[in-house]
Amino acid sequence: MSKYLVSAIQNIGHRVIEGIWRLGVGTRFFLLVLLKSGTSLRRFNLVIRELYFTGVLSLIIIVVSGLFVGMVLGLQGYETLQKYGSESAVGTLVALSLVRELGPVVAALLFASRAGSAITAEIGLMKATEQLAAMGLMAVDPVARVVAPRFWSGVISMPLLAAIFSVMGVFGGYLVTVVFIGVDQGTYWSQMQSAVDFHFDILNGFIKSCFFGVAITAIAVFEGYDAPPTAEGVSRATTRTVVTSSLVILGLDFILTAFMFRGVS
């Protein structure tokens, strides 16, 4: 029994040390990617190519989810606000929840599972099939040529996708409350406009999504590059990307929110 306990404690210790070690390796890799970003900024075509895969191909899921999240928000918000006779505030509710929280966070979660996992799998497979090694032997640095463009494409597309998500959500809320339920459309927009502030809501939401973009793609490229070059290794790395980045998004969201809205309202 005590032997079992000891091994369990050892296991925990091992995992913690392993985690800290990986964090160190990952951070070093992240800095390396930043250091070698010159090529992808000089040859922006490389980034544009990856933007297609991370951005354009994520559009459908972002647009559809944004629309539905907005519709549900409108419906639920209306049901609740109606009890207090303030259904006119439904526009405010939809817009504020989307712009401040749901837009950046849900879009980031979707982005992690759609684009982040794809990045990890692609880089992992390139490693497993010796493509990265071949590139190195052709005197082309794989971090500069393969990793950095993918990283930057993610950093660029994440805020754009979050904005598209929010707009679709506002539109979805409009569809449900104004078109279906019959809230006055002037009220919907004006209430929203008087409550949503550019600096505190929209800019902060935008900054959040930028942070999420960096975090997700940094995790995705690291997991891919670090994956054991086997089928099992790549599949595990892909799972880890989704799990780790989801947790990081939620944790980061709390920290950023605490910083941004501290002392204000």
Partner: peptide, 15 residues
């Protein structure tokens, strides 16, 4: 589309 969405958020949704 992405930049348009940002603009719309800024102008139409946020005042």
């Amino acid at each position: 589309v992405g930049i348009g969405a940002l603009m719309m958020l800024s102008l139409k949704v946020g005042n």
